[in-house]
Design a protein around this nucleic acid. Structure first.
Lengths: 149, 149
DNA sequence: CATATGTCAGTCAAACTGACATCA
DNA sequence: CTGATGTCAGTTGGACTGACATAT
């Protein structure tokens, strides 16, 4: 139970710090994650459904996140070229610039984990990964060499 | 950054499991924490302000949490005997019964951390504690041998 | 036909701000 | 007087349910 308490409090602390850093950029951590995901995609665009799958958020939450990013001009909605049902979120030039600046700020703050060394961060990831695995976090988004990934 | 992602996801997974277990008891994790805190207090009652301090939640959030617990009959509001400004939250008999049952269910589910051994849980706490300390988590609620603690 | 995708309307729990009455 | 305590009104960001139009 002590471990759970530590987990909860550290999450609260770290998320608070990250959101504070991201606020000047007009981002929350959830929106930042979505932008980073697009940055790392091949074409700079992904179907909303795939984004929700990768980020593990509810379909309606992705709609909301993309709504706000689009209103801020960091993302554009585009029709999917081959699937008439799907909508693509495409990162804009402004979006890429904001991600870059925000990432620099986050890195300068050690992502809120400056108290830990590189070895400790690795140890932490080693400890936490089995829990994600048990929750099926890595077995769902397997190989899909389809259109947009 | 990978460490941050792991932290966020594991928090989401564990909290989701805990809330699922607590739901049949009519509790969220936040409300459960508040009840446990009262259980561990000497008189079974604490001023709302002290509770917010210990649980690290906003004053208005404590008001809301106690509101719901009181509506469920798990807690009673009482005037503070010596400080006319303060209000005490006192756990009821029904409250103690619910905590006991909920704690049994949580323990049976290893608090959502069944993937880790006792040694691993200890290692995790060792890693996370410095972050809490850096955030001032242990330096604020120091010695206060006052009325109600 | 059944299934997948995204959206909408609405609910919910929580964190927050600003204001306020009350009391030490 | 100042400062502490709790509450209220209202906003925000996010997770959720149920329903739905549209397209595969």
């Amino acid at each position: 139970m002590r471990a759970v308490t530590n987990l909860m409090r550290v999450h609260q602390i770290v998320l608070g710090q990250l959101d504070e850093i991201l606020k000047p950029h007009g981002l929350t951590f959830a929106r930042y994650e979505a932008l980073v995901l697009l940055t790392f995609s091949r074409r700079g665009s992904l179907p909303l459904g795939k984004m929700g799958e990768r980020l593990q958020v509810h379909p309606t939450s992705i709609t909301s996140i993309i709504d706000r990013l689009e209103r801020a001009g960091l993302v554009r909605r585009q029709p999917h070229p081959t699937d008439g049902r799907a909508t693509l979120a495409a990162i804009t030039k402004a979006g890429r610039a904001v991600v870059e600046a925000a990432t620099a700020d986050l890195a300068a703050a050690d992502f809120g984990l400056g108290q830990l060394s590189g070895a400790e961060l690795a140890a932490m990831s080693t400890l936490l990964t089995p829990i994600r695995r048990a929750a099926g976090d890595f077995t769902e988004g397997t190989q899909t060499t389809s259109d947009h990934e």
